[in-house]
Write a protein that binds this DNA or RNA. Structure first.
Lengths: 231, 231
DNA sequence: GAAAAAGTGTAATAATTGTTACAGAGATAA
DNA sequence: TTATCTCTGTAACAATTATTACACTTTTTC
């Protein structure tokens, strides 16, 4: 998530807008603080109340929480620059769901909830961006749940392929071609299944005349069959 | 979700605050419109752009989308009063994910995105409530993903029981007792598994000395074993 | 181009879960 | 209390997926 500018200096991504640094991203009159943590130092403990926005601006941390990128339960590494637990700032029960520990010398920016609200009042563009940022994340989580809720691998594949078919397809003869945006290994991880199981499901759907596969190109041989395979 | 007041007239739940009706909930100077739909009339089609807030204020609708209550993929019925697709108003790609159809004579309140922003500027308390509402929903979805991401039923159970153990437990002799907040049928639905499979997992964990079960009371016989069973 | 790394196809076996069915326990209502 | 309904425990069998292993292809790197 670390974006670099021409000079190789990390830019600061503040809810979708890039700035040279965090100082220039934050409007005049808004109070915030930064704090440095050494390696293995605990930044937040599970259950600690989360009274504002925490942004990791330097270094990397280890965490078990749902990451900003929608990553799952297992222990996870988050690199600068990324907000931590931004979803929980305004929640009714706003505490860190797990421990957060510095993996190296790291720097955290903190802004209290009242200051965030003040900032939103001063800068409506920023409020818009925050709303969009959170909305996009909710959508990401919803999509993930849809995917995880579908039981069988073939049904997941049918959903996924039909989803691609909706957004963009290419006619060839009497059938359609769609292009997968992930390779099999990535797709297996996205589905939460093992790679061999995914490969087997693909080859069986191919054998059963639903699709044909050529690298990342999938030819839909039976739209009807795919729709039935959704479950 | 239909809340009634003393007179039995539905109250209007506007992002967590109750009002006698929708008119009194919306500040002066904010434009909105309402529209009635007859039974089986299509309210929104999959892919329709979602340019604002839609609130179902009377009647019921059928939908396949991720419902506001976090419900899953399958076709779903939503009753008044509930916002529709409120997560998507401010998303980058803001269109209805599926079809929405009236199940009976229903009434929808519509407010354009600009009016919502104007309303947030006029009433910061309302903005706070909206932020909290969305944050809570994100947390709900995150929790759901955690649950769905855990692979085996026993691991789900271990997570669930240890979660209960964290929030409230009761010492009895040399072991702990926690109380499940759902019965087996509900728990099976929450986990997305079948009820007999859940019962089998419970009885095997009981047989293996991890827990003992007496109705909704679970005695933790091996905290270590449970932690290992999390996966 | 050669070597290394990453990705793919496939198979046998084990583990897990779903399906279906039935009996009994417990709660609820008439 | 009796009838009814919901919840629970259990079992046999089917279906699905994980695990592990290996050969092969494609891409990347030097």
């Amino acid at each position: 998530m670390q974006t670099k500018n021409n000079q190789g200096i990390p830019k600061f991504n503040f809810f979708g807008e890039l700035y040279e640094n965090y100082q220039s991203a934050i409007p005049e009159g808004i109070e915030y603080s930064t704090k440095e943590y050494n390696k293995n130092e605990v930044i937040a403990r599970q259950g600690d109340s989360c009274k504002g926005l925490y942004i990791l601006i330097e270094g990397s941390v280890k965490t078990e929480m749902i990451a900003e990128n929608g990553g799952l339960l297992h222990i996870e590494t988050i690199y600068a620059v990324t907000p931590l637990a931004s979803a929980f700032i305004f929640a009714t029960i706003n505490c860190f769901p797990v421990d957060v520990t510095a993996l190296e010398k790291s720097k955290i920016l903190f802004m209290a909830r009242e200051q965030i609200l003040k900032m939103f009042q001063m800068n409506h563009e920023l409020l818009m961006r925050y709303l969009r940022y959170n909305a996009d994340k909710t959508k990401f989580l919803s999509d993930k749940i849809q995917m995880l809720s579908v039981k069988t691998i073939k049904a997941k594949l049918a959903h996924y392929i039909l989803g691609l078919h909706m957004s963009a397809q290419q006619k060839e003869g009497d059938s359609f071609i769609v292009f997968m945006d992930k390779n099999q290994t990535e797709l297996a991880a996205y589905f939460g299944v093992t790679r061999p199981s995914l490969a087997r499901a693909l080859s069986e759907m191919s054998r059963d005349g639903l699709i044909s596969i050529n690298k990342k190109a999938v030819r839909i041989r039976s739209l009807k069959g795919l729709m039935e395979a959704r479950g």
